[in-house]
C-alpha cells in the first residue's frame, strides 16, 4: 500500500505531466496506422501514467480514477472489442479480422472500413493492455509486506 509521497517536487511534476502523458498515449493509439505505435504501445504508456500517479499521489487517488474492479471490467471490454470486431467479420462472410467486409454495415468504402476496423481493434488492445498492466501494478504494490520479506526474497 503506497501512501501519498511527501516529496513536493515529484508530486508537483507528476501533477503537471500526467494529463499530457495520457493525451500522448491516446494520440499513439489513435494514429497507429500513420506513425509507429498502436494499441500495445499506447496501452503501456497509459498504464505508465497511472503508475506515475500512484507512485507520486498515493494509491487512494489513483483508485478514485481506476479501481481494481474497473480495471477488470475495462480489460474484459477491450478483449470483447477485439474479438467482437473479428467475429463480426466472420459473420459478414470474410476471414477473421477481414475488415473490408465491415463496409457493408458501416456503409463506407472498403478502404475506409479497413481503417475504421483497425482503429477499433487498436482501441480494444489498448484498453486490455492498460487494464491488465494496472491490475499487475495494484497487485504488486498492495501486497502486505515488511522489511523482512524483502531480505528473504533477496
Amino acid at each position: 500500500m503506497i501512501q501519498e509521497s511527501d516529496d513536493v517536487i515529484v508530486k508537483a511534476v507528476a501533477r503537471l505531466l500526467v494529463p499530457f502523458i495520457v493525451v500522448y498515449a491516446l494520440y499513439v493509439v489513435m494514429h497507429g496506422h500513420y506513425s509507429p505505435g498502436g494499441g500495445f504501445q499506447g496501452g503501456v504508456i497509459l498504464a505508465a501514467s497511472f503508475v506515475l500517479l500512484g507512485v507520486s499521489h498515493g494509491l487512494e487517488k489513483t483508485r478514485r480514477r481506476m479501481s481494481e474492479k474497473a480495471a477488470r471490467v475495462v480489460s474484459s471490454i477491450g478483449v470483447l472489442l477485439y474479438g467482437g470486431i473479428g467475429a463480426l467479420c466472420l459473420i459478414l462472410g470474410g476471414n477473421y479480422l477481414d475488415y473490408a467486409k465491415l463496409g457493408k454495415i458501416l456503409r463506407v468504402t472498403p478502404a475506409e472500413a479497413r481503417s475504421l476496423g483497425i482503429l477499433g481493434v487498436e482501441i480494444g488492445v489498448a484498453l486490455a493492455v492498460m487494464a491488465v498492466m494496472c491490475t499487475v501494478f495494484f497487485a504488486i504494490f498492495t501486497a502486505e509486506e515488511s522489511p523482512e520479506d524483502y531480505r528473504s526474497v533477496e
Binding site: I9, V10, V13, L16, L17
Partner: peptide, 16 residues
C-alpha cells in the same frame, strides 16, 4: 521542455 522538467526531477528523486 519535457527534458528540462523531467531530468532534474529524476536526479532529485534518486538522490533523495
Amino acid at each position: 521542455v519535457f527534458l528540462f522538467l523531467a531530468q532534474p526531477t529524476a536526479t532529485h528523486a534518486i538522490s533523495r
